[in-house]
Every structure is written in C-alpha cells, then in structure tokens.
C-alpha cells in the first residue's frame, strides 16, 4: 500500500487521538471550555482521518434511511394536526409524537417539532389566515401568555386553547377519553395499547385487568368519572380568561400569546425576550 509523504500512518493517528482525548478531558476538568472546544474539533478530524485510513469508505448507514421511510409522506404540520385533532386538547410535543406513532402510520421527526411553533407564528405574521389552520400556543389563563411546551390548533375555540391550573389534568382526562373511544373503534396496535396503559395507570379505577392490559371502555368511563370532578371549575376559569383574551389581544396574540416584554432582568441579553419563547425551545430540545 502506498502512502503519500506527510499523510500520517494509522499508528500515528491513534497516538494523536489518544493525545487529543487526554487533552480535551484535561481542558474540561480544568474548566477551560474554549480550549476543549478547539481540541474536540481536532479530535474529530483525527478520528475521521483514522476511519478513512483504516476502514476506508463507510457504507451508507442503513438506519437513517429506515427512519426516513418510517416518517411517512405527510408534512410535519399535517401530522401534528392529526394527532392534536385526535387528542382534542392542548398537548406537549412528546405526547403528540407518541400518539402519532401509536395511531398513525409513521413517526413525527422530533427535531422538526421543536421549531414548529416558531415557524407557524412567522408564517401567520407574514400572511395572516393564509392557511386553513395554524399550530399555535396554549395561553395561560392568568397572563394570556404562551404556556410552556403546549401546542394547540388555531381553529379550536379559545376556551379550549386556554389553560388554567386545573386544565392540565382536565385535558389529560379528555385526551384519555378520546383515545380510548378511538381505540374501541378498531384494533389498537401494541404501541397504542402501551399508550392507553400509561393513561390508565394514572387514573383511578381505569386499570381493571392484569398489569399492562387495558379495557378501552373502562378507561373512558374512569376518565369521565374523574373529569366530572374537575370540569365545571376548570371551564369557568377558561371561559373568563377567554373573555379577557377577546377583549385585550389582537389576532396574532390570541393565537401565539402575549409576552412580558417590558420586564427584564438586568444582565440578560435583550434578544432573549424577543425570541419566540426560549422556554419552549428548551423543553422540546431536551
């Protein structure tokens, strides 16, 4: 095998990799983040060079293409809309993803969900009402601000899109009922059965049979019974907040919420507040 002069041998590369790994770890242990970042980049280069020298061209990773297939052909916003429509209540991206995977063909790519609400808001502000629906925020009942990490559909009545202190539970029960009823109409997949079990295990009286199995009708009945306890109190709060929102908020705010822009802690970059909901980003990235 010929090697052009100056190209390091695999042994040299290995020594280099060992050296760089040690250097990165030392930099991190000493709290030198910038130094570590530079070294880390060098390390990745050296690892790639080693891969090329020793392993040659890697075959196209099989897993990635399989994921592509599983995603299905629908745009992400369509998928999210379907899942939310089935759930019938504000939901976190994680639940939306699980519900879609359990009841629809394919999966919603996680990283796309993270930026979805921002994209929707941008689209609405550029051309209001150009689309038949938007995926938008749930609003907190007290401040009419976007609730952290919840998605809703713009065509829902405002009351449904507003969340008070009792709403997370009420919505969870509403979703349980709707998923159970949907499951009753067909033969639920193993993923769907697992999801229903997850719901049933946290609702009193919903898990009747053996551990891990759930009777959709029993789940729906138990969820209805608990929902009866919370519904009126929850609804009163949501309705009064919705009235306030109609009075005070413009269209865009009604969909994406109003933010506290005036108050700002000193020392924080100003851009942080103007950016569309950093708290939400943090949640979905994790």
């Amino acid at each position: 095998m010929f090697r052009s002069p100056g190209v390091p041998t695999p042994d040299e590369l290995e020594a280099r990799i060992t050296e760089l790994r040690a250097a990165v770890r030392r930099a991190m242990a000493a709290g030198d983040r910038d130094g570590a970042r530079g070294l880390r980049a060098e390390l990745r280069d050296a690892e790639r060079a080693w891969d090329d020298a020793v392993l040659g061209d890697a075959p196209a990773p099989a897993a990635a293409s399989r994921n592509e297939d599983r995603r299905g052909l629908q745009p992400v916003r369509e998928q999210v809309h379907q899942a939310l429509t089935l759930l019938g209540a504000p939901a976190a991206p994680k639940l939306i993803g699980t519900v879609y995977a359990a009841f629809f063909p394919g999966e919603i790519p996680g990283q796309r969900l993270a930026s979805l609400r921002r994209d929707e808001e941008r689209s609405f502000r550029t051309a209001p009402y150009a689309r038949p629906y938007y995926l938008c925020a749930a609003l907190t009942a007290d401040m009419l601000a976007p609730a952290r990490g919840l998605l809703t559909v713009s065509t829902w009545p405002l009351e449904r899109r507003i969340v008070g202190p009792l709403s997370p539970r009420a919505d969870f029960l509403t979703s349980a009922i709707r998923l159970a009823e949907h499951a009753e109409r067909g033969t639920p997949s193993p993923d769907a059965r697992r999801l229903l079990w997850r719901f049933a295990s946290t609702i009193p009286g919903a898990a009747t049979g053996t551990v891990g199995t759930v009777e959709p009708a029993a789940l729906a009945a138990a969820a209805r019974a608990e929902l009866d306890v919370h519904r009126d109190r929850d609804l009163r709060r949501r309705e009064s907040a919705a009235r306030r929102a109609r009075d005070r908020l413009d269209d865009a705010q009604r969909l994406f919420g109003s933010r506290l822009r005036a108050v700002r802690e000193s020392g924080r970059p100003a851009a942080r507040n103007a950016a569309p909901d950093p708290a939400h980003d943090r949640e979905t990235d994790g």
Partner: peptide, 13 residues
C-alpha cells in the same frame, strides 16, 4: 389536581 408552572412567568424566566 391544580398545577402551576413557575419555571417562567409569561415566557420570561
């Protein structure tokens, strides 16, 4: 069952 999220206040932390 009431739940209040105090991690941020109207998007401001």
């Amino acid at each position: 069952v009431a739940y209040d999220d105090l991690e941020s206040v109207a998007g401001n932390d």
